[in-house]
Design a binder for these strands. Sequence first.
DNA 1: GTCGCACTTTTTATCGATATTATCGCCAGC
DNA 2: GCTGGCGATAATATCGATAAAAAGTGCGAC
Lengths: 261, 261
Amino acid sequence: MNEPNSDVDTATQDAPAAGSSSTLATAVYERLRRDILGGVLRPGQKLQVEFVRDRYQVGNSPVREALSRLSSDGLVERREQRGFYVAPISADDLRELIKTRCWVEAIALRESIAARTPEWEEGLVLALHRLSRVPRSLDSESHATNPEWERLHRAFHIALIRNCGSRWLLAFCEGMIDQAYRHRQLAVAKIYPERNEAEEHRAIVQAAIEGDADTAVRELESHYQRTAKIILDCMEAAQQPAPAPRRGRTVRSQPARLKGA
Amino acid sequence: MNEPNSDVDTATQDAPAAGSSSTLATAVYERLRRDILGGVLRPGQKLQVEFVRDRYQVGNSPVREALSRLSSDGLVERREQRGFYVAPISADDLRELIKTRCWVEAIALRESIAARTPEWEEGLVLALHRLSRVPRSLDSESHATNPEWERLHRAFHIALIRNCGSRWLLAFCEGMIDQAYRHRQLAVAKIYPERNEAEEHRAIVQAAIEGDADTAVRELESHYQRTAKIILDCMEAAQQPAPAPRRGRTVRSQPARLKGA
DNA sequence: GTCGCACTTTTTATCGATATTATCGCCAGC
DNA sequence: GCTGGCGATAATATCGATAAAAAGTGCGAC
């Protein structure tokens, strides 16, 4: 996981960043990353060097390097001698991802709580507060995502586990958070039912600060499972435009892989 | 983690591989990786493009790409505009790593056991058997490491968790296994006390196959802790060539960072 | 007439030589 | 003694060359 953003320190709000990076390769990496996470570049889509080069107005090498880095992050798939593709996505991937997140973030949260300090608790409360001050979506009708909310949401979930005492674990979780974000972005275009996420977040923080790890973990897991359910429903709906009654996962032929481009 | 070796299938022993990769960049990646893991390239050592280029007889671009990939694996540290360095190592890093391995591989092992199948069990027994057929070190005096044993040891530990049902988790664990291997290689040059590793491995497998997850995990964790202890002792010894009696972790001033080159 | 297969053409991933740009040490000037 | 420009070193980027894969084409067989 290539230190995507080490921002979100309780002190420094957030770097000016957003565009100007010292190296071109990094700049392309960041922009590509944004575009893939945001769903602008569709899963499975081929990323020809030429295409990316034109898109971001840079040379060959920075593009290759950016793609290379992204493939380590699992956002891009590299096929030897055949180029790069936006990593594909499937319902199974999502299930596996959420399962893994629940396992691993449960540990991370427990450890964070076990080692809790005033600083960590304050950071957490702050992250929650900031998140609550920003609307979930910019337009309450279209459910268009609010980038600021997404940023703060990410920061919030990282704040929860930041105190776990393992940079390895933290980096791993960050990678999975990004993947989950991507799944969400790709599905959400359709519908996003009413849901009291703020309350879910609040419950986690409360339990965490009270040192009640079991409750905190339970809340966190159900938070994820609920999201997963929504996304999986979206996927299924997208897969089968309208037809018949269907009894559980009908189309086994197609592995529900959302194709792109 | 960049699919370092997806070998070790119970069926196909191991590919001829070892050198010829379709792309030059991948070849350099693999060779560099071996050299870093094996401790030939010392922690902290600077990896100038020119140096690597000469060392492996290739051009500029493949080197950059290989270094880039390795930095995503955490084996190389990239400093923007300042080049690449072999990732440094410290006692604290090791402690954090082992701690994380225990947390995460405990889950992976439990899940593997919970979902156990005859195939998985057979693969496990096989991995254990193969490992037991090869000597721990080639020369019983010098404790020189036996590359074949190391390979099989890695395969064994992966076999344990292969059945966990999460490619994410598996890849993450593989990355940590490699890191731990590196720490081991770097320390082991000094001493390696007698130790019945075969028995430790056997105990884990037995518990796993009996479905006794608690025991299996306990054995696995103590297996790791024992290794960690040995390496940490080595590090400390290396830090303080001979002096005084010392009462527990004396040198808090120096973070016991092994410098390289 | 249609299908299969081998060869040719085109595309494009990969690589290396070369140019550009940033960093760091060094020395002059204030 | 510190600040700020100058130059050496080395990282980064460009671009054209090379070679592999994909697409297209035509020939022959059934």
